[in-house]
Simulated scan of single mutants.
Amino acid sequence: MGCAAFGNLYAPVADVDAEAAMAAAIDVGVRHFDTAPYYGHGLSESRLGAFLRATGHDVILSSKVGRSLAEGEAPGDTGFVGAACARPYFDYGRDAVLRQVEGSLRRLGRERLDMLFVHDIGALVHGADHPARFQQALDGAFPALAELKAQGVVDAIGIGVNEVAVCLETLAAVEIDLILLAGRYTLLEQAALDDLLPLCAARGVGVIVGGPFNSGVLAGGDHYDYGAVPAAIGQRVERLRRVGEAHGVPLAAAALQFPLAAPAVCSVIPGARSAAEVRANTAAMAHAIPADYWAALKAEGLLRADAPVPA
């Protein structure tokens, strides 16, 4: 379960609704919760930590490093509505990363984490500053996470990003266990099949697919990659929906189940902001999809011919 919504991404989520969504996730068997200090500027981690302290559930937790929080400073417009009063800023240095982890552990009420990802590294986020930021991470963040792994503070380390290029760049430079790749291996795009997924499979690096709905557009929402839906994307989604209707397959069901067929993919983590959305995701994962649906997508040019599909 991706927990960005509990940081009030796009719109506020009441405490009671966040708690109900987490409880519903536990009820249906979800045991991996992914969060980050950036989500609501600490709000998502705080809500998740409060829920786990109150309920005592034993879950797998992943969080991220790369952004420090200047508490008490105006955050600016980050897309999180009613976020905690803290200004997030990038810092991939070793000391900053260790302080970021301390903050996450405090908010989550834990002494250790299962996974830690270097967050939003890459040219997509940093533009011309990417080489300097990436070098800072190579010198600081990645060695710090390796130390924490050696100390038993975290079990697995990796990156959490929205682009393929920096995944390949990272794999060429450091040893990691996992990649959390958001929005780049979905029904709408499969370029990760060219190089990244085969390399991860060969290297034994697990891929967690985040953003399987591409920020919501594949589940009936009005966002694509954290912004408005481009006309071309909207048209493609409509074509996908029509093929699904012809085969009795809801688009959300196909979007959730498709990524898991790739050998390197070990998990898919949709977000949810309510118990109803959790139950909808669960139903989508359980929906039986006939083989001729996937064949029809490929015949229509809506899915790459070489894309692995669920049996």
Rank of each mutant, 00 (worst) to 15 (best):
D27C: 11
V28D: 13
G29R: 14
V30D: 15
V30M: 11
R31L: 15
R31C: 12
D34H: 08
T35H: 03
S44T: 00
L48G: 06
V59P: 01
V65A: 12
L69H: 03
E73H: 12
A74E: 13
D77E: 09
P88A: 11
P88K: 00
Y89G: 12
D91E: 06
G93E: 06
V97S: 02
L105I: 06
L108Q: 03
G109H: 08
R110G: 10
F117A: 09
G127N: 03
A128C: 11
A128D: 13
D129W: 07
Q135V: 12
Q135T: 15
Q135K: 13
Q136N: 10
L138D: 03
L138M: 12
P143V: 10
A144Q: 04
L145Q: 03
L148P: 08
V154H: 07
G158E: 07
I159R: 01
E163Y: 01
V164H: 09
C167P: 04
T170M: 04
V174H: 04
V174C: 15
L178G: 03
L181M: 01
L181K: 05
R184S: 01
L188P: 01
A192F: 06
L193R: 06
L196T: 02
L199P: 00
G204Q: 03
G204L: 12
I208F: 02
G210Y: 04
G210A: 00
G211R: 01
N214M: 14
L218K: 00
L218D: 02
A219W: 01
A219H: 07
G220N: 05
A228K: 13
A228V: 10
A228Y: 11
V229H: 10
R239K: 15
E245R: 03
A246I: 07
A253N: 00
A253W: 00
A253C: 02
A255I: 04
F258E: 03
A261Q: 09
A262Q: 07
S267N: 15
A272L: 04
R273A: 13
E277A: 13
N281P: 02
M285P: 03
M285Q: 14
A288C: 08
P290T: 03
P290K: 08
D292H: 09
G301C: 13
L302H: 01
